[in-house]
Amino acid sequence: MNIFVCVKRVPDTSEAEIKIDETGRDVDSSRFSFDINDADNYAVEEAIRIKEARGGNVQVICAGPQDADVMIRMALAKGGDSAVRIDDPRINKNDPLQMAKVLAAYIKEQEYDLVMTGCMANDNWFMATGVALAEELGVPHAAMVNQVEFLDGKVKAHRELEGGLSEVVEMELPAVLTIQTGINEPRYAPIRGIRAAQKKELKVLNLDDLGISEEEVSENSSLIELQKLYIPEVVSKAEFIEGEPEEKAQIMADKLVKGGLL
């Protein structure tokens, strides 16, 4: 089975203070730490497991700058066979449909049975690229997949719905699956794999190599426009407990017990 898995490098902003930069349309990312997007990490693992069980080849695709190579090599160290990084500043990063076009331009020239993406990128939260990619490729898809089975050239995907319910859908291959976190337990890269990964192929391509014109994927031609970013005013009704950690704990304990909250 030939599997392509799309990975994005994203900042971890869960604990970071975010500042909007001077353009007003981007954030200052100079102090963020970056890593592979959560869901993509699970997608890589799932792809490698399928290859290990059924044979085949796993190719990693990323659109992003050179800084992403460390993350890509890590996916290769875990068992990916080769990688492609699409590096071109002309690509609009704020339109998932254009990103899907870029990824599709490469994939549709290859032989593939399965394409996997994460279900959501943690920076922009679009939840759109994978399903748009399927439409660009003209193949069926299932979003938010948390279990995969294969049978006679078909794939059975379990889609995770709200409230813990799942839905099983069956599709012809090739197909696109957007992978939900928790589908498996991602492995750590073995030391030997890390060394081997340095020798694996990592191609770097730009729009010209892919035969896409700037017109198709640049901000100018996008059908949406990011006007401005701003920090939301948090209207919190919360009473904030002040003091040293011990004092805070004491005050909170009092409130819980004496305030009748229990």
Partner: peptide
């Protein structure tokens, strides 16, 4: 809409 897990708001306009 929001970016970065709800830490940033964005106005995004439709074009065309």
């Amino acid at each position: 809409r929001q970016f970065y897990g709800g830490k940033v708001n964005a106005n995004v306009a439709f074009k065309g």
